[in-house]
Write a protein that binds this DNA or RNA. Structure first.
Lengths: 223, 223, 223, 223
DNA sequence: CATGAATGAGCGTTCATTCAT
DNA sequence: CATGAATGAACGCTCATTCAT
């Protein structure tokens, strides 16, 4: 009896996982609207009704796909950051963990960019509230770190929110490039280094006899 | 006769412009799939068939909406860059022009982020090839500028493509934040300055007796 | 122009009438649930979408079918009653008009019995509120007539509501029998006479030297 | 062993009874089509498959629900009628027994009205042939009584079938009113009396110096 | 027998597109 | 050209029924 129930339960969970993975790949490939439940059922090798018995509706299935992966992402990034001692170290970890996770989950990356990176578009696919909260709590943690860095005189006294957006924007932009070509994403270790360097020190090579003069209108190069 | 034809032509163009604007606002608000041709026809106060006689299909209309605005964007950004003499100046101009344009076209911003920023997702809406080309040619111009900057020893010897993505990512991320709240986008001048500063010099305050040591694991504070 | 619109309008109304008639016959034959919109579209020789463009949904179409006919019924019965001078005459007219209408609308009779006669069952098919009101207003008129009859000493001092139900019940029961066999409903004129006779004077032949002794336990006042 | 089998059998019958009662209440509340087998299984606290192993299909379960109750009704009404000596007494008993049974089985009343009162509609739910036969045999018995009454000069020489329909129609119409409001069915004893009175003697108060002139066009036989 | 996960035919509904006027 | 009624393919979803355990 107990054994039976155990097996049943295990199978149940395997089926859920299997359907989620299948759905993820199709949603990623075709988007929410062009994906049909029949396509998912077919590829998952379940009957249409079975998908519904597991997830209730297309929207809920979609939500569950995102939720599951976002949870993994948040857990992974948060735990990685926890190890680092210094403010800089934590940010490095954030960048590294987030980009690594996205790189290891390329199908998810598409959904991530459509749903998490550009969330307020809400063009249609309403993320469950708790998914947003989960993700935002991760970003809040990062904001706290940045803010501490500013207090300690490590970072420029900008709005911490802006800085967080900058980190997010940089990492997303590079991750996006991995989707483009077959080989692009092979350079991902280098990309992570570049993003880190750019975030901390910018693109410009510091000139001994110059200030950051050219970021201001009145900046003129000397004779 | 000629006068008549001229008037006809002018009316024709006005109609096209009017439908494009209407379509843009609805597409921006509801996304491609949740927008129906009937909604557009209704709001534009044209018959359904008329929309088709002008644009052929929903996809083509959508493409035309994007194409029109992307052309404006590219023209605007390119012409602004043309004025600047130095490499840094051109990049400043790029950032300023792109963000200004997006800020002045908030409804378009949604479509831009969904279609241009995350283009390879192609979740559904296949941008006309030439739109991509147009936009990419603009980025190529920027890449050229960056490359020159590297040659001149102004920029760090990174892959120019990566740097371009960084600029794009930073600007898009900040523009995105304008969609969030009603007042957020009032800070857009400050946001442009911050993005520029971050891109050129990073978030970290340079320490006199230190190099950019702390971005690397082996970095230890000097004596 | 005006001619075109006139023709269009006429066609539009003809189509509506045609679809309503078709739907009525199928709903009557198969019931609400076993009727599919495809069946209606097929028999009406319209595309599925056309039915929807006219009636919005299956429920609304069903409601419209009932509403249309109930309106006809109410108008017919009410106008017939108006002509009669006496209380008895009005009731005769009611019975005659209602049964005649149902007899002339045999397909509708099925829907009538399922939806109007047994309305509170509401097993599923919610009649539009106004249909009920219309029908109830007709019955209210009848109740008023009955009440007047009681005041004038013509009718026994029963609850007028009960008497109305009795009239309704008698007429419906006989009408129902018309659906059974092919010839049954040929006797409808005789049925109407019988119902009228039964309602006014009952089934029993008055016995000169007896009262209705056996219908009341306490009735024993012999000579 | 025998004891075991006895217990088994008893349990089996209890289960059947329990499922039938549960199904009756849900069918009555929601109708045949809007009731799902899962709802019944859930409320009966049996597995879905168990319901099927007992009843084969939804239609058969539905049929069994009706059949069971109709049998009870027929047995009850028939046995009550048997006691009465006179023709009038038997009819009084029929009316009283039928209405009492329906009043004591309000949930069933809904199904009765939908399936037995309006049976030929067959809108969907095909009653098992034998249920109809059972019910019709009861009505045949009543028809026989009426016929005898006519022979004996007690009843007007109408078609006995019509008179039976009248009794049925009157009783059903009043029973129906009990479903309407919460208190309506408290008057059921009075309703039974009224129905009986109406059936035997009609609604009109006999006028000494008048005949039922207005119910027959030709009736003019003065004194 | 009891179970309930799995099945898939079939439904109501939408909406891009066409074409007669 | 402009119109909008008509079209029908395709979708999301339900639920009676089956069958391996």
């Amino acid at each position: 009896m107990s054994e039976l129930n155990t097996r049943r339960k295990r199978e149940h969970e395997q089926h859920i996982k299997h359907i989620l993975d299948t759905a993820e790949s199709i949603f990623a490939e075709r988007g929410f609207f062009r994906t049909t439940m029949r396509q998912i059922a077919l590829k998952a090798e379940f009957a249409l009704g079975t998908i519904y018995s597991y997830f209730g509706s297309k929207k809920q299935l979609y939500g569950k796909v995102i939720e599951t992966k976002v949870n993994e992402l948040v857990v992974f990034v948060t735990s990685e950051m926890a190890d680092a001692p210094s403010v800089q170290g934590q940010i490095e970890k954030f960048i590294h963990a987030k980009m690594t996770f996205l790189h290891k989950n390329l199908p998810f990356l598409r959904l991530y960019l459509a749903e998490v990176d550009v969330p307020r578009l809400d063009l249609s696919h309403i993320l469950p509230q708790k998914v947003r909260e989960k993700y935002d709590s991760m970003l809040s943690g990062l904001t706290g770190v940045i803010w501490r860095g500013i207090q300690e005189g490590l970072f420029k006294p900008m709005d911490a929110r802006v800085i967080v957006k900058a980190i997010d924007g940089l990492t997303n932009a590079l991750a996006l490039s991995w989707l483009g070509s077959a080989e692009a994403h092979l350079s991902f270790e280098a990309d992570i280094r570049d993003v880190t360097e750019l975030f901390f020190h910018g693109a410009e090579i510091p000139q001994k006899s110059r200030q950051n003069s050219n970021t201001r209108k009145e900046s003129n190069d000397g004779p």
